[in-house]
Design a protein around this nucleic acid. Structure first.
Lengths: 209, 209, 209, 209
DNA sequence: CAATAACCGAGACGGTACGTCTTGTCTTCAG
DNA sequence: CTGAAGACAAGACGTACCGTCTCGGTTATTG
């Protein structure tokens, strides 16, 4: 969200809530039309029918604004119980791939990550708004698979966390790399091969321990 | 490399080769110091002691220049025979992680990928200069493992290619995501867990087919 | 003056009046130091401690800026009553010659006239800001001479206007040509000869009609 | 070596002379199309189908080139004997006005004069190529008028020279000022009034001495 | 119910980088 | 050797954004 978190001085005119929504919507629209690098604060302001001052009062710059604008899109990802780990993973990977097909996500995600390599606060913001929030999917999927008996129950919570992180990086990384770097389609065939590889690896790792 | 590929007009003063080298070197230096977003064409030009026109005569813009400047760094990756697939993969993954620690690669890679989502020619250039060139590592590692008997010989060359691509996306994607998105260290512990997962998956996949 | 004439948009930050003055002063200083052809907008901006955009917001380019910068200098010309037409003319011609000795006028005047041959709006601006404003001198001098009886009272106002214009072109043209084209000094001797010729011509013309 | 010497002496520099003519012609054409300030050396070179090097080998820059290109146009001015001083002057003034109507002269003349205010060698070149060459017209006209008895024979050659110069500045200055600064037509009516004024002045001056 | 304080729009401000253009010099090749 | 072709360093051009700063004016709460 924007920097104004909790403690507001209770006096003075309050900030317009419509403005916040209009700005984020305008940001997404501008991302679709122009892409990250052609998007400008001035353009977002005029799309949202808002003064530039109003933008800068809420967000420090383009990076922060765009992170907030696209973060909400990642909350669309869901993990319905499809009966098997394989099916659950395939489903969420396809959802994620569909999200990466959307121009606003496509152009914004890598850009803010690139910026974050030189900007510690931005890195934190991305982690909070996007990365950590989606780790829930791995957690939920793993627990469900354990409940089904597809995966052994982890004894060491520390090792479990590390494995969750590893799986998250593998899934998210592989899909993003396929979609944006290799620039090849994340279709059902690829997803099945990928999921099989992953589940095979998890099984082998479980057997080894 | 630069746009002048083969057919040179036989007349006029030829382009300076020193300038080419100085520009790419200056670009890398500027990336280290300033990062992607603060890097400017004018600054690169003055570092290289070259006129801006000389830059623009060779590269269409910042994106193309930076791709060429960092592409060569990826050629440092090597795959020495360490006796086992596990060791080979761990070695190259650590090398790749070290490459992503370097500020010039760190800041440039995601940025040009982000730009490429809206720029088809740039996407091609990245694929040619970086992505496809490093797939050699997967090819070589797989063939060596097959020679050692660690992996079964692939019968269907089409399926083999698809698996090579999959492995490439998984390795590169996971490492990049760990290093730049999750922003956590790619250390030996993580690499071992990751490599075990991958090799387990490959073994399971081989057993299944 | 600058393009903002009367109707100001009532909203937004008003334009800085100090900036206007600083820019015109900086322009004159740059003309003195560098001359017309070496004068650059960027240099004027940095002398005036003003952004280039501030210049371009007020003036379309170098031509318009310089016209405004030097126009005010022409207002220094005065026509004190020295008792005779001969003395009045000699005085103003010497003043004008002194003005043309100043480097800012010297270098700017012919340059903007040259540009105006291809630029109708610039021609209008020169006429308004410089030419027409100085015709007052001819008008005043002629009326004073008529009051003294040195020249007959004009009956036809149309013919009077035409004669005023003719005299203006003859005086200004001859002095400018002597000073800048022939590049010879406009000294007292020359001024006396020239004034005698002019007054003689006026007298003969009056006698003929 | 022998053949080269032969071919050199045989072909010598005929190409070079064609180039000179082509360059000056191209310069005039470019002046007509683009005017002084938009005219560039590179454009002239390509119009003349000549390398820029060839231009710079012959002329120091735009100023010198343009002076040479337009100087020849001033040689068209002639002073046929029309029977009276009044008619002779009117004729040459109209010719001069017509010359100033041509776009190449119009745009070039004031521009090079403006440049010459900061460039002594250019001032010399203009004087040699244009100014002094046209003073012949005043000399010839004055002598013819003296032969006709319209003007008294000058006794003092120094005073005569000074008067010739004065007349030259008055005629050239007034016409240029009328045409380019006041930007009003130099038509027959104006020319008659002007010539009458001038001849009246000369008569009065002669009577006075 | 006025004062106050923070908000809002509009738009000018000082800066910085852009990508292009022109200048005058230089380097190569062809004849 | 001369000339065309064109690359070169230098630097100005006019534009676009950035993030900040006035302005005049608009809500809410508070005294």
């Amino acid at each position: 969200m924007c920097s104004r978190t909790t403690s507001r001085s209770r006096t003075g005119r309050p900030r317009s809530l419509e403005a916040d929504a209009a700005i984020l919507e305008a940001t997404r629209a501008a991302l679709v039309e122009l892409g990250w690098s052609k998007l400008t604060m001035g353009d977002v302001a005029s799309r949202a029918k808002v003064a530039k001052t109003t933008l800068y009062r809420r967000w420090a710059g383009k990076n922060e604004l765009v992170v907030d604008a696209v973060a909400v899109l990642f909350d669309e990802l869901e993990l319905p119980d499809l009966g098997s780990l394989q099916a659950d993973i395939e489903h969420v990977v396809l959802q994620f791939a569909a999200l990466l097909e959307r121009p606003e996500t496509r152009t914004a995600l890598m850009a803010v990550v690139a910026e974050s390599t030189r900007d510690q606060p931005l890195r934190e913001r991305i982690r909070l708004s996007i990365v950590d929030r989606q780790k829930r999917l791995v957690l939920e999927g793993r627990q469900r698979a354990q409940a089904r008996g597809e995966l052994p129950a982890g004894r060491d919570p520390l090792a479990t966390d590390a494995t969750d992180d590893l799986i998250f990086d593998v899934i998210a990384g592989a899909v993003v790399h396929r979609a944006l770097v290799s620039a090849e389609p994340v279709d059902e065939a690829w997803v099945q091969r990928f999921t099989a590889l992953l589940i095979g690896g998890l099984g082998a790792a479980a057997a080894a321990s």
